[in-house]
């Protein structure tokens, strides 16, 4: 059975992109969220196997969302999506419990590599 993944990014474009990469590789999209706040809500609803989380988002950024998700479920697996120049934020997310990170612009094989390492 395909693993359930939740995508969180404020750009529809990015969500679409990741979604296609993942579904082509046999993963199922559990939910999509356009900001951190929604991500936390939806995490509670669908309990995905993995979350791909953008860092820079309106309403609530990815790091705060990560912390809240971790508070709800300590075993939550979250991979951060960052852009170049966000090193400190990525480190902060790793400290807060992110498993891995991928850097925009995305390369499909990198995304899959990270996802595979996280949930197989």
């Amino acid at each position: 059975m395909g693993k359930n993944i939740m995508i969180c990014d404020d750009a529809v474009f990015m969500r679409m992109m990741i979604k296609n990469i993942l579904t082509k590789n046999g993963y199922t999209i559990a939910a999509e969220a356009e900001n951190g706040l929604k991500a936390v809500e939806k995490y509670k609803e669908v309990s995905p196997d993995l979350v791909l989380m953008d860092i820079t988002m309106p309403e609530m950024d990815g790091i705060e969302a990560l912390k809240r998700i971790k508070a709800i479920d300590d075993n939550a697996k979250v991979i951060m999506c960052s852009a170049m120049g966000q090193q400190a934020m990525v480190i902060e997310s790793i400290q807060s419990g992110a498993m891995d990170f991928i850097v925009k612009p995305f390369q499909a094989d990198r995304v899959i590599e990270a996802v595979k390492k996280a949930i197989g």
Binding site: D10, G36, T56, M60, D61, I63, E64, G85, Q87, M89
Partner: peptide, 28 residues
């Protein structure tokens, strides 16, 4: 350059935190 970037990124994360407390306005 990268060090500078790191620095600004740190500030940025601070800003972001301040930002979402006020509640964002630009909800799509």
């Amino acid at each position: 350059a990268s060090a500078k970037e790191t620095e600004t990124a740190k500030d940025a994360s601070k800003d972001n935190k301040a930002g979402h407390k006020e509640g964002g306005k630009s909800q799509g």
